[in-house]
Design a protein around this nucleic acid. Structure first.
Length: 938
RNA sequence: GCCCGAAUGGUGGAAUGGUAGACACGAGGGACUUAAAAUCCCUUGACCUUUACCGGUUGUACGGGUUCGAGUCCCGUUUCGGGCACCA
């Protein structure tokens, strides 16, 4: 009987769908396991063969866990908001919802063919009102919260207001944009707008002024890569650095928790390290410097408090508010000129072109330890957004300060013994201090480490400064001037942002006629005038308590891509719930994702935002756990394997790879789908493109051999392989096996269709084991033989271990070895063959179900209990040891399996003596390697 | 520049410090076949030796080291990949 994978796969996919085989419900009597893939953005190109890699890997794990008795949640959905659909809409006028809908249908069709155990009843789409309801809701909760540094959690903003009413800012320890100080009386005296502004300083979702690339000509904010030499790539309009009001999320408040949480989760070290770098915790000292002949003082941040005696100048960021205060009249012209020049440069240009620039402010600061007056400069190598936007410069021990000092001829004072600073600075944090003493503090002779501690202690006691931890993590900018995203549930009352009442959510995205910005420079939602009116005045004003009949402007920004993907794993737990994001019961049952699979490209995006979002939801008691993803595996990218033909220059003649050195050739990408084992299908090539109709070929051995290279899988390289094509030719089970066989999941590897035959042959061979020549099921009921049991239990052990370690590639090999062994044994034993079906079921579900049914089972194999192995069967009767002298093997000896190492050693030595091999030699050591080698060291 | 990871046949890749190259592809040879496909068998790191068998040397990017024994551990170097990048 032939292995008719097409019929088998269709049959089972239909049956699974009809019976809702993979539908899961919360079941307190069974342990849960939550497997999750990062959900895809449904692009117009459809899935290529690289996309399902992670889905297959997690599907195998989900199926394995299910067979182990777990109640497994394995959902799938779509990250449906995104730029490509919107760009397409601008070009064609096609509504992004329609494009997205189409793409999702295509994705679903492709996914269904692979045989996943997804519970499609739990599908989510970020662009559906029922889903983004809860994205908007979470945003509102963030708006209504502040972060209490002492309690280390988010609290309702009302609590803060209470405190303001009672004591002003006295005793407040909250995360904020800038430190404020006012009394209760002052608070009460503020009007609504002023109070709103003050609260913005504390809210977790807040409107803040941030630096953006603003392009007036296009009426939008641009990303850095959309700007070159101060003009927009598209249109060539001038672009300036501008502070703009944007919605932000105070993710920085969670820096420490985001950092600490990393120690509690099972992610790869490299990914954790990337997140640690991104959060960028740095422990240092803040010190206050007074300005000479002035009341002004300012604070700097340094991690090298020990170098305070080597400060020879100070530097302010150009954007710093201190610049205006410290610039003296006679320097003003120069400073203004410098600031203007800096403003024109984009972030990108500053990084690309690192020539030293700066200007003297005219002021001097007083070194609090030496009393020296030191010049204050302004330079763009100091960033406004980090620390205090001002630094103390120690050119001897900081390379950037050194470059600046050399350029402007400022003094350099070495502070570490033996450090040669004539050519470059000495940045290392080691050595013995010198030149570092005043009447009260003497660092000379101490190590750098000791000096930092001593200086911290000193400045703290003297009130000059304090110990401070800084984080590089910035608050997330949360608004976009785009159409295809979640609308903000916000309207403005006399400039004060107000939340649309919760009962009016979701605020639905309106239809608009034009996806470009409006003529007045507003985001695309500005076209939806009627929507704004209806929403705010009918839905909001009439339904809510707001007693006003004027038209309120509504927020026209939309949310960024990461908004919808930040809590989707919670929504899968309870996707239809219209009372809340997730019910207490569902959350309590599923808790967190046990296994999360996705690409490492999300290390500093989605995986940070999501962790932050979850921590916030935990603070407001929606989610139960601190960390959403207990274990994370980054699947490696599947790269493309491109093929080339070699055209002889200025001809239409193509030369085979082996002969191309004899000609002057140009390599040309050729569609990998008309190449097999690097041999070109010449006729298909001629038909591929009109210009190749008359192509001629110089062959080798009658074949045209193509060159190849590993590149990114992309249309332009003609190396995209569609899973549908593979499935049509080999079946989904072969595809699943082969994707796993390619190599370790975490590793990037090229897709090479050439190897797939091996996996397909294996499945056919496996299939044929169950049937005789006439095609009848040919299993016999009998006690398995010892050899059969040994082979089988070796496999159970290996596969069980491999699945737990996610080394599926070696599992596939183990299956191949076992099937070869069983074939050699002519195994027809029902018990053995049935167990084999269970073992391979996670990898090849369709084939397994079919065999399982043929073997007379009425249940599905996906519920069949995972077999356990018995060490007894794995035991050998005797074990062959290699006997070697000084590592060189001489001969072998057999020993009973239960022989101890001592017995083996004694027996070997007795044999040596009897044979006379070791007469007159000194034996230094005898090493018995378990089950392998006896090495006699002379 | 800083941090992290990797390097094994023609290819993808195996190998708790213990006989390197499992398994698979490709290639070569053979069987079956009118032929092809399919299937099955043998060979396949390099080099040397031999009519053949048997055998030997060498070999996991490079140079050292630890060890009876190193692809694996340690030190240094090179190359490639990834992340961060004026973060004071």
């Amino acid at each position: 009987m032939d292995y008719n994978f097409r019929d088998i796969e269709q049959k089972w996919q239909k049956r699974w769908a009809d019976n809702k085989t993979y539908h899961v419900t919360e079941d307190p009597n069974r342990p849960k396991y939550y497997v999750l893939n990062m959900f895809p953005y449904p692009s117009g190109a459809g899935l290529h063969v690289g996309h399902p890699l992670g889905y297959i890997a997690s599907d195998i794990y989900a199926r394995y866990k299910r067979q182990c008795g777990f109640n497994v949640l394995n959902p799938m959905g779509y990250d449906a908001y995104g730029l490509p659909a919107e760009q397409y809409a601008i070009q064609t006028g096609q509504h992004p919802a329609i494009t997205t809908q189409k793409n999702i249908a295509r994705y679903r069709e492709q996914l269904d063919k692979i045989g996943f155990c997804f519970d499609w009843d739990r599908e989510v789409r970020t662009c559906e009102p029922g889903y983004y309801h809860w994205t908007q809701w979470a945003f509102q909760k963030m708006f209504g919260s502040y972060y209490d540094n002492a309690a280390k959690k988010a609290m309702p903003i009302e609590k803060l207001i209470e405190q303001f009413n009672a004591n002003g800012t006295e005793g407040i320890n909250a995360a904020c944009s800038e430190e404020l100080s006012f009394t209760a009386a002052e608070w009460k005296a503020m009007d609504r707008k002023q109070q709103s502004d003050v609260l913005m300083n504390y809210r977790i979702a807040y409107l803040g002024e941030t630096m953006v690339n603003w392009c007036a000509g296009l009426g939008t904010v641009l990303a850095n890569d959309e700007v070159v030499e101060g003009v927009s790539v598209r249109g060539g309009f001038p672009v300036e650095q501008k502070k703009m009001r944007q919605w932000c999320l105070r993710i920085s408040a969670y820096s420490q928790r985001l950092l600490d949480g990393l120690d509690t989760i099972d992610w790869t070290d490299s990914l954790k390290e990337t997140q640690r770098n991104w959060i960028g915790r740095s422990e240092g000292t803040e010190m206050v410097f007074h300005v000479k002949d002035s009341d002004v003082q300012f604070t700097i941040f340094t991690t090298r408090a020990d170098t305070i005696f080597g400060v020879t100048f100070m530097v302010l960021a150009p954007e710093s508010e201190l610049v205006a205060q410290l610039t003296t009249a006679d320097q003003k012209a120069q400073v203004d000129e410098y600031i203007t020049a800096v403003k024109k440069r984009t972030e990108r240009e500053r990084i690309a072109d690192r020539k030293v620039t700066g200007v003297f402010s005219g002021s001097y600061a007083i070194n609090p330890l030496t009393g020296d007056a030191i010049p204050v400069w302004i330079s763009d190598y100091v960033l406004a957004g980090y620390g205090t936007g001002a630094i103390m410069a120690v050119p001897a021990h900081d390379s950037r300060d050194y470059a600046f000092a050399k350029h402007f001829g400022l003094p350099i004072i070495p502070l570490i013994e033996g450090a040669d600073v004539s050519e470059s600075s000495y940045d290392a944090k080691e050595g013995i201090m010198m030149n570092s003493a005043n009447a009260e503090l003497n660092l000379n002779g101490l190590t750098v480490k000791e000096s930092i501690a001593a200086t911290k202690k000193y400045v703290t006691e003297k009130g000059i400064g304090r110990v401070k931890v800084n984080y590089r993590l910035r608050d997330a900018i949360f608004s976009r001037q785009r159409y295809w995203g979640e609308p903000f549930p916000v309207y403005y009352d006399n400039g004060i942002p107000c939340m649309i009442p919760e009962e009016c959510l979701p605020l639905e995205l309106p239809e608009i006629s034009d996806y470009k910005p409006t003529e007045t420079g507003e985001p695309p939602l500005g076209h939806a005038v009627k929507w704004a009116f209806d929403t705010v005045n009918k839905q909001v004003v009439e339904k809510s308590l707001i007693d006003n009949k004027t038209v309120f402007p509504i927020e026209l920004y939309t949310m960024p891509g990461f908004a919808g993907s930040s809590a989707y794993y919670l929504r899968y737990m309870d996707p239809q719930n219209n009372k809340g994001l997730v019910s207490k019961e569902a959350d309590a049952y599923w808790q967190c994702v046990d296994l999360y699979l996705g690409g490492s490209e999300h290390a500093t995006g989605h995986l940070i935002y999501s962790r932050f979002w979850n921590k916030f939801l935990k603070d407001i008691e929606v989610s139960k756990v601190e960390e959403p993803f207990a274990k994370l595996i980054n699947q490696g990218m599947i790269q493309g394997r491109s093929n080339f033909v070699y055209r002889i220059k200025d001809t239409n003649t193509f030369v085979s790879l082996g002969l191309k050195e004899q000609y002057d050739t140009t390599p040309i990408h050729v569609d990998v789908n008309i190449v097999s084992n690097d041999v070109l299908d010449v006729e298909a090539f001629k038909a591929w493109r009109p210009e190749y109709n008359n192509a001629e070929f110089i062959l080798e051995n009658g074949k045209y051999v193509c060159g190849w290279a590993v590149e990114k899988m992309s249309k332009s390289m003609f190396n995209v392989v569609n899973p549908d094509v593979i499935i049509e030719k080999y079946g989904a089970d072969t595809l699943r096996m082969y994707e796993m066989f390619l190599g370790p999941i975490e590793q990037a590897k090229p897709w090479d269709t050439n190897g797939i035959d091996g996996c397909h042959r294996f499945l056919r061979k496996l299939w044929n084991m169950y049937f005789d020549k006439e095609g009848n099921l040919a299993v016999v009921d009998a006690e398995p033989t010892k050899d059969e049991l040994k082979s089988l239990h070796k496999l159970i052990k290996k596969v069980t271990e491999d699945i737990q370690n996610f080394s599926y590639n070696t599992s596939v090999s183990a299956f191949m070895i076992c099937v070869n062994e069983l074939s050699a044994l002519k195994c027809r034993n029902r018990q053995v063959l049935e167990t084999l079906v269970k073992l391979i079921a996670p990898f090849t579900p369709h084939l397994s179900e079919e065999l399982w049914e043929m073997l007379g089972n009425s249940t599905t194999v996906c519920d069949a209990q995972w077999p356990s192995f018995n060490e007894e069967y794995l035991k050998e009767d005797s074990i062959t040891y290699s006997i070697s002298f000084n590592g060189k093997t001489r001969f072998t000896m057999d020993f009973p399996a239960e022989a101890t190492q001592q017995e083996i050693q004694d027996a070997v030595l007795a044999n040596e003596k009897a044979q006379g091999y070791i007469d007159g030699k000194t034996i230094r050591k005898v090493i018995v390697v378990p089950k392998k080698i006896v090495n006699i060291v002379l």
